[in-house]
Design a protein around this nucleic acid. Structure first.
Lengths: 330, 330
DNA sequence: TTGTACGCGTTATCAA
DNA sequence: TTGATAACGCGTACAA
């Protein structure tokens, strides 16, 4: 099919080591020979076998990405899936390959993820959807290869994480509502004990307390689903609320649907802000103001952390996307 | 970190070839020795270096997946991204790794995709979002490694494709509407000259012609976007239509929004059926009846084609998901 | 049944 | 400046 270094050497009548050096631009080869060899390499479409390179380099330039799916939902509906975009791009930028592992169905991991990496000689690993009660959580903390988790708080010698600035994002939303004159602001929380949920809840708490407006009756604990947004809406009917901040767009959309059915107008009667910026936000009626997560940057940062052995967590800025679901209060 | 075959050999006092044979369950090693060696392998956590294996096997067990993004939209909004789910699962099932390539931003390919595979010694390739006017289309057709495209019609010695049964899907929708009594059925087509669009349009044409109902005034050419669905809605106002079949959910949803704003009730005044079964279908008002594509199966089949060198195209069954956007006509 | 020796395609060391 | 050779870790004829 294509020649290898030995054949190319024979063709141009030099040794294989000369070719290797020339192509790797080593200093101890004359410029003219380098040119000659480079041209020959192109002519005979020679390119070094990456497998052989990896064998001698003892480095695979490959990162493992573990997509840890909680409820066996299809990947396409799985939020963490989106991080792949940035991960792939950033990894390619540094000539790293990524290998994706999934734990649904067939592969319920008995082997620890880190062992999997070890066997495959991977240079690092990224975890999406990692839970603190994962059987291998501690095993990951003590990993000998660099590891980064996305949206999971985890610390260790070679371990760090990246997440959105969840707390800051919620506060942005609340400040916006505050400027609009809202004081009675409801909060839809995500599942408790998850890092991002806690951070968002914490953002709500601290802002509201700073304005001495905090009322824990104004918090509903959902589970990020559309349906739990509907249930949150039910809670709202008998409360004097003018605005809602939701920990996810899905829940905000669910609530919106419920409210509209009950003849509550948005944003005239109630203002709503979501979190994530999923595509439906643009198309809902009214379109949904939301805190956008920069998933591409999050993905990129996660590979940066692994590649640079970075130890301090990274919080990625969120952005308030103003649409039509909020209104000034009179 | 962990032992290699040579060290393990020294530890248990046998030769490396004995270990290799024992672990690969060759017939010329005694059963007791095999057991002894397997146990030792576990004890010293030995596992063969996959890189070295690949070097000698001259086979990487790795498939390239090219995600060819048309308009540089983020991957998360990119429909083809969903095929990854099935691709990853099926590849893992057969102990194959996948390598993902993207052509957005940084990497606008000058090198042909097949050359990329060649350099990386990949065993096969899968193309998502491949267009017929791609500069390397012909190059792919004549690929020497097995190739499968998803949703692109392509033929070649080692080349095949997988798609939904788009024509059959549309016909399913039309038959359903027919049973419901609809006769004046509008069709929102996707961008012309794309394979799937043509198939869906062809399904509409042939069904309508078979009922001698065909009227080309009843076709609107959109571009799969929400906005083009709105434009399709505008076309509808002055036509006597009772039902609409759309080539995508996004367009159906766009049309639905427009129609509702213009006080046309769904499904009372107009029945609507979409295509794809995106998540928003469940949450729209009314929820949207649609032709579901089985993206997981499509992904799986694409790797089957590559792995088995299958030559005949595969069309995956679609499924009519009945929700609340269609109604019997009186 | 077990072991020796070579080859897979590179890079790196050291001698020429 | 160039080239011979060992090493990377494994599989596999072939010899013992």
């Amino acid at each position: 099919m294509s020649v290898n270094i030995k054949e190319l050497a024979k063709i141009i009548g030099v040794s294989i080591s000369t070719i290797s050096k020339a192509l790797n631009d080593k200093s101890d080869i004359s410029e003219e020979l380098k040119i000659k060899i480079r041209n020959a390499a192109i002519e005979y479409s020679y390119s070094p076998n990456p497998i052989a390179k990896r064998l001698v380099a003892k480095k695979t330039n490959t990162l493992g990405v573990f997509i840890l799916n909680r409820d066996n939902i299809p990947l396409k509906h799985y939020f963490e899936f989106q991080f792949l975009d940035g991960i792939i791009r950033e990894a390619n930028l540094y000539n790293n390959d990524i290998l994706i592992f999934t734990n649904t169905n067939d592969l319920s991991y008995k082997k620890s993820y880190i062992d999997e990496c070890k066997e495959r000689k991977l240079d690092g690993a990224i975890f999406l959807g990692l839970r603190e009660d994962d059987p291998f959580f501690e095993n990951i903390q003590t990993s000998y290869i660099p590891v980064c988790a996305v949206d999971t708080e985890i610390y260790g010698e070679n371990v760090s994480f990246v997440s959105s600035d969840n707390k800051g994002g919620i506060i942005k939303a609340l400040e916006y509502l505050w400027e609009l004159g809202h004081r009675d602001i409801f909060f839809i929380s995500g599942c408790q004990n998850a890092f991002v949920s806690n951070e968002r809840l914490y953002g709500y708490k601290s802002f509201m307390e700073s304005k001495t407006l905090f009322n824990k009756e104004y918090i509903f604990e959902g589970n990020y689903s559309f349906e739990s947004g509907i249930r949150a809406g039910e809670q709202l009917l008998n409360k004097k609320i003018t605005a809602v901040v939701s920990s996810s767009d899905m829940m905000a959309l669910g609530m919106m649907q419920y409210l509209k059915k009950n003849n509550i107008r948005i944003p005239d009667d109630i203002s709503i802000i979501g979190f994530d910026d999923i595509i439906s936000c643009e198309h809902s009626e009214p379109s949904l103001t939301t805190i956008a997560q920069n998933v591409v940057t999050m993905g990129r940062k996660s590979v940066d952390i692994v590649l640079n052995g970075n130890k301090s967590p990274i919080l990625v800025e969120t952005e308030l996307i103003i649409r039509n679901s909020c209104k000034k209060i009179n």
